[in-house]
Design a protein around this nucleic acid. Sequence first.
DNA 1: AGAAACGCCTGCCAGC
DNA 2: TGCTGGCAGGCGTTTC
Length: 331
Amino acid sequence: MPELPEVEVVRAGLAPAVTGARIAAVEVFDRRALRRHDQLSVDFESGLTGARVLAAVRRGKFLWMPLADADAHADANVNADAEGERNGRALVAHLGMSGQVLLRTPGHPGPGVPGEHLRVRLHVEHPDHGELVVDFDDQRTFGGMAIDRMLPTPDGERAGFSAGVDGAWARSIPSQVAHIARDPLDPAFDDAAFARALARKKSEIKRVLLDQTVASGIGNIYADESLWRVRMHPQQPASSLSRKRVDELLTAVRAVLEQALAEGGTSFDEQYVNVNGASGYFAHSLNAYGRDGEPCPRCGTTMVRESFMNRSSHRCPRCQRIRAGVKTRAA
DNA sequence: AGAAACGCCTGCCAGC
DNA sequence: TGCTGGCAGGCGTTTC
């Protein structure tokens, strides 16, 4: 289940292979993988062929590759509006539930390999690394790719994380990612604005953590882990939290995301792998997620699983209780 | 307008 | 054994 750490592992693996590379050819084996693509603006295959990849950027769970056209001066075929023309285009990817990006050598077998669900294949030519195949594999097709136009970021800050690689594209964001909030690891993430957003929400805190328009990158696994770490009940009303508790929660979220990132992400079975097909190790570090029936690593109480938002919450019934009146303690 | 419910999709597994 | 239903779950869309 790719959340921020898993997507970042993919981005970091993809970046050196594609930055500066030219897309020589595109194969789409299942057009459902283009679900988010605006088919009217530009054909996916012809829109990518010949383009040069400028970087690999991530915000939350969204990944994109800003593009430079093969010949920027003779770009008469692209029927983009002036705004899109000025800010450029990007190849946007979302892994959904089961998406994988895999780097392969030319000649790698195509669709039909048992256990694989190859949807899109890019043939790229890198000035240093030569020819390379970038495969988008997605069992459940909750993920997808699209060509999207870029918009300037409203705050003028960098749109997402690209490991220091810079360019004119850095302060533009694909239109379909524009409504997604910055993630808690983003230097431009606004802690005070996050606290204000929570103060306005009567919803349960876990629901708010999963709302990508409030803070992005957090999914079910890291929400449960963060709430366990900060001893917070997933159904604690967001507006009941003091600023102090919000800050503690943000600290916990960042610690969990960073630790997972350091361990290569969370892998169950073969559902999540890096660009080389290898699994991450964070599944061994989980304290709450999937541990129902086992003792809480902190207090020994048997952990429980509860149905929540059509999914599961895992918590310690002793450490994580709903508390009333915490709002009054701190400003 | 904000929140909740729904639909998308496939593989796996418990239960009958 | 073979079927069915439930579960996994992020995000866009629809409904309330």
